[in-house]
Design a protein around this nucleic acid. Structure first.
Lengths: 190, 190
DNA sequence: TTTCGATGTCAACGCTTGTTGGCCTACAGT
DNA sequence: ACTGTAGGCCAACAAGCGTTGACATCGAAA
């Protein structure tokens, strides 16, 4: 067995604290307004430690924005429940982990974060969509449409916080948005 | 007649050049990365002129992000064409004027820009939705849902530039997204 | 107990930012 | 021709940024 990170280092707690603070700040302020100094203060350490462990601000963001959508296997979902399943999953994922919010905020202004977002949805979402056996020629487009509604929901609900979108309960969101995703996934190609 | 700005000043050309450059930079880079110096260089004037005419960076942004969605009167649109009409209008508006892109990018990180975005959609979009005579109790929510899909489309197509969304022709977009907006506008409340 | 790398602090660097005030210039009104 | 004012430029400021290297301290191996 090739141990890449064999035994626990004494600094693991610090590294984790930095990462947690970084995610919070990036999610709340975006890439440029989140300063290394503020993140270090939140983590109760010196700014230079951030540099030592993550090399640079870009490196820190790359580590903090590491994310797995953990999409379920759509082949195991009843075909007429695909939309509902996806909305519920996304809602839970957005609200349970601020990493996605950090990535979304940063993607607006930081080219690297935008690239990361592209990879996230191109790889993970498109792969999941391909998984339930749709026509390969339309898979990417269907995934893109799902991304447009999903990210738009996140943007209005968690970033801009449009009141009517914020006030919807999770069930409201599912009731309205699930049919949209369902059609994007299984509807006729345009 | 009360002339607020009676005769043309000699500096009007400069003011306009600054505003044009500001919109470009804000649209391309977002609020924090768009520097006054860069904007001034684009407009071929001194950074201090920006301050003289717009007071501060915030003031410049406020002036540059002034925007009218110019939504059509939805009461004059055939009820089953509401979705299509809106998608076409938004597509044209997004691609013909980079102000909206500037506002969208900035809204991710700048609280003032987010507030501006809220007002834009709360006032202009909700008013248009109310205009075709839906139940007042559901108007705000319907407008919010339309905003979620519309902004999501813009975000994926113009900001993050997800390839499958970018590659869609305007007609593709209309064919897929119009039914979504149509349901948000006229579908049963959830 | 000595040693040595890992962990952490401190002070400073070079740079960019928004912003300011002083100065020059050109033009319109007299 | 004279003058006042608006338009414009230049140089500089203070603040904040990411980043760096020198120095202290701890903890485990020898």
């Amino acid at each position: 067995m090739t141990d890449t990170a064999p035994r626990a280092r004494r600094s693991d707690a610090t590294r984790a604290a930095i990462l947690r603070a970084a995610r919070e700040r990036f999610a709340a302020d975006g890439y440029e307004r989140a300063t290394i100094r503020a993140i270090a203060a939140d983590a109760h350490i010196d700014p230079s430690m951030v540099m030592r462990y993550y090399g640079s601000k870009e490196g820190l963001f790359a580590a903090a924005a590491e994310f797995d959508l953990r999409l379920p296997d759509l082949a195991a979902v009843p075909p007429d429940r695909l939309g509902e399943t996806l909305v519920r999953h996304f809602l839970a994922r957005w609200e349970g982990d601020e990493t996605l919010a950090a990535l979304l905020r940063a993607a607006s202004t930081n080219p690297g974060a935008a690239e990361r977002m592209r990879l996230l949805f191109a790889d993970q979402l498109a792969a999941a969509v391909a998984g339930f056996g749709t026509d390969p020629a339309t898979t990417a487009r269907r995934a893109g449409l799902v991304a447009s509604q999903t990210l738009g929901l996140a943007f209005t609900r968690y970033i801009v916080r449009l009141p009517p979108v914020v006030e919807m309960t999770p069930e409201d969101v599912v009731a309205w948005v699930a049919p949209t995703l369902q059609r994007y996934l299984t509807g006729r190609p345009a």
